[in-house]
Design a binder for these strands. Structure first.
Length: 603
RNA sequence: GGUCUGGUAGCUCAGCUGGAUAGAGCAUCAGCCUUCUAAGCUGAGGGUCAUUGGUUCGAAUCCAAUCCAGAUCACCA
């Protein structure tokens, strides 16, 4: 008999793959790989744990699937008695039952392992850039999807052994920033976030809105005065003032710089409050005001390498038509860099500063084209990190009524959203009345844990690539496929463990009775957790974890309703179920942590 | 128009590297709290997997065409 260590150091699927490959070679004198057959989890209506699909072997072996299944099943049972206890064949499917001892060993080894499923450091560095706000507007629901996604992906990569640097580029310059500044100069009469009690990012955002209102009115007036629309848009006094301010900013005019610094500091203070409340953080922050001049020397290099070319008016371009894209400008005729040039410069700077293996950009899918072009240019320039740029492209968040449009005031504000979720979690908690003995501080923390958990889970449970619809009514639901459901399951388990684990807590289970179906279901699922983390990491997809954790919690709740833990039939059954409960709780906590969601001990 | 996404139950989504009778949650209906937390559990109804054709022993999944929806194709960022 091999040791438990041998068995458990490898997942059951890997064990199954290897034993099948060896058995097939022994039986048929050919060599096989894991790609020659398929392994599925056995459907619940059939007997067994895992299923080998025989059809793909039929052609190369020239035998009917039933024959292969019988021979293979026989061989596996005989030569791997420490893994398999039974098999059956239905049509071309070989269903294998894993021996109970395997599951017991697995449980004994992991039920108290809070690091279960996570890997040791692999020595590789990855940067995840996310959030990346403008400083003229507060954060909205789309930012929340971005932030939760970026943060979670960073955690998932860490769990897979990467060193992760979370970064953020703040778009703190340009004409849109000047708009808020001009509007403030004209209309604020010296008021500040402090004097008005308005959160800094909202305060500045209000002046951005104000600018647009005034601008629109001025344009309308000029048009009624006989100007064309184009002329009116250029000549509106507030726009001219804004453009002058941008020039002054670029010249470093002291009073403009001072105002710019002040207003940005208001915004940052506001962002910090939001980041703090939703648990976002960054290891490295880049400011566009520092990076917008980057990339100039790269333009020169590109000219030298004939990757770029100069047009008659002096502007510099790259021709990507051979790659199926257009010509793209990289330097204006006045010699200033454009957006993409800055990005090239920043990409290189990131690489040089941190020597990262991979540079992940969490950016909406509206920039797919831009990011594709960015990578293409870097590759053409022969930059060392060009292949390491990865655009983690996520879909927009839409409302049931359609798209969010700032001009129509249908944008869901991030702070409003958080507050609403906190209020809802408070209301639910009070209605249920289970934590009446909590202190004020404990209650506040609990509302925050649940409210934020609901919101994060809601935004992360969907495949990031997909456009998702935000339904206000559904999002505040705390039942079913939601964060609070999972949190509740955790709190429920902890409650059981508190009551049942007094002194003789951590004994291993030594089972003689067969595992019951609902016990095994949890066991099988728990055993897959490490593979789930790997998958989430490979796909950079937190929804894999959200779905998995939900199903695990659901299975536990069924198990809980069906079988008694405290009053189990025997003492060994009780121990088994307690260990199973603890393992489930650990996985829930660990998986939720990868989503950035805390779990409460009671709720 | 070119390129890229997507279309699965009334709604929101899984499943997509081809496998057994397509799954969840919400909503609807019917049950379950004097034993471990009912934010829970059990069950019912609800589907032409956009359409058509192809590949295959087998297609929601792969390929092609068509229809529909969205994004993008700035000397804005």
């Amino acid at each position: 008999m091999p040791t438990a260590n041998y068995i458990c150091s490898m997942s059951i699927v890997k064990n199954l793959q290897e034993s099948t490959i060896q058995s097939l070679s022994a039986l048929y004198n050919q060599s096989f790989t894991e790609k020659d057959f398929q392994i599925n989890q056995t459907k619940p209506e059939f007997e067994g744990d895992y299923t080998l699909v025989m059809f793909s072997l039929v052609k190369s072996l020239k035998l009917p699937p039933e024959t292969i299944g019988n021979q293979l099943g026989e061989h596996l049972i005989k030569h791997y008695p420490h893994l398999f206890s039974a098999y059956n064949i239905i049509k071309g499917f070989l269903n294998l039952t894993v021996i109970d001892a395997y599951w017991h060993d697995f449980l004994n080894e992991n039920h108290n392992n809070t690091g279960y499923g996570k890997k040791g450091m692999n020595g590789k560095k990855v940067m995840v850039e996310y959030a990346s706000p403008n400083t003229n507007k507060p954060l909205h629901l789309g930012h929340l999807r971005n932030i939760f996604l970026g943060w979670s992906v960073a955690e998932i990569l860490k769990a897979n052994g990467y060193e992760v640097i979370k970064s953020c580029i703040i778009n703190d310059r340009g004409i849109h920033i000047c708009k808020s500044m001009i509007a403030w100069q004209l209309f604020a009469q010296g008021s500040t976030p402090d004097s008005t009690g308005i959160k800094g990012d909202h305060f500045v955002g209000d002046y951005y809105v104000k600018f647009n209102d005034v601008y629109k009115a001025q344009v309308a007036n000029l048009i009624t005065a006989g100007k064309t629309k184009d002329d009116a848009e250029k000549e509106a006094p507030i726009m001219k003032a804004t453009q002058q301010m941008l020039l002054d900013w670029e010249d470093g005019k002291p009073e403009v710089m001072a105002l710019w610094n002040t207003m940005n500091s208001w915004v940052y203070a506001g962002f910090d409050v939001t980041y703090n409340s939703i648990g976002a953080d960054f290891d490295k922050t880049y400011y566009e005001s520092n990076t917008y001049l980057l990339g100039k020397d790269i333009v020169q290099q590109g000219m030298d390498k004939n990757v770029f070319f100069k047009k008659d008016d002096g502007s510099i371009w790259i021709d990507l038509t051979a790659e199926g894209y257009d010509e793209k400008i990289v330097q204006r005729r006045d010699g200033t860099s454009v957006y993409i040039t800055q990005d090239i410069g920043l990409a290189l700077q990131k690489y040089e500063q941190f020597k990262i293996e991979q540079s992940i950009y969490v950016i909406g899918n509206e920039q797919n084209y831009h990011m594709k072009v960015l990578q293409l240019i870097c590759q053409k320039l022969g930059m060392p990190n060009a292949d390491n740029i990865f655009h983690l492209s996520y879909g927009m968040v839409e409302l049931t009524s359609g798209k969010m449009k700032s001009r129509e005031g249908t944008v869901v504000d991030a702070d409003d959203m958080v507050n609403e979720m906190l209020a809802t979690s408070q209301q639910h908690t009070e209605e249920l009345g289970k934590v009446k003995d909590f202190t004020e501080t404990e209650l506040k923390l609990l509302y925050h844990t649940i409210g934020l958990g609901a919101m994060k889970f809601y935004l992360l449970r969907v495949d990031p690539k997909k456009t998702m619809v935000f339904n206000p009514a559904e999002s505040i639901d705390f039942h079913g496929f939601t964060g609070p459901f999972v949190q509740y399951t955790y709190a429920r388990i902890k409650s059981i463990l508190r009551k049942q684990l007094t002194n003789d807590s951590m004994t291993n289970n030594t089972m003689t009775d067969a595992l019951l179906k609902s016990e095994k279901e949890i066991m099988v699922m728990a055993e897959q957790y490490p593979a789930i983390i790997e998958q989430a990491s490979a796909e950079l997809n937190p929804s894999v974890i959200a779905n998995y954790i939900f199903h695990l919690a659901k299975s536990f709740n069924s198990f809980y309703a069906e079988l008694s833990i405290a009053n189990a039939e025997t003492e060994s059954k009780k121990q088994l179920r307690l260990n199973l409960s603890r393992l489930t709780a650990n996985i829930i906590k660990s998986g939720m942590q990868l989503l950035g969601i805390a779990v409460p001990e009671r709720m």
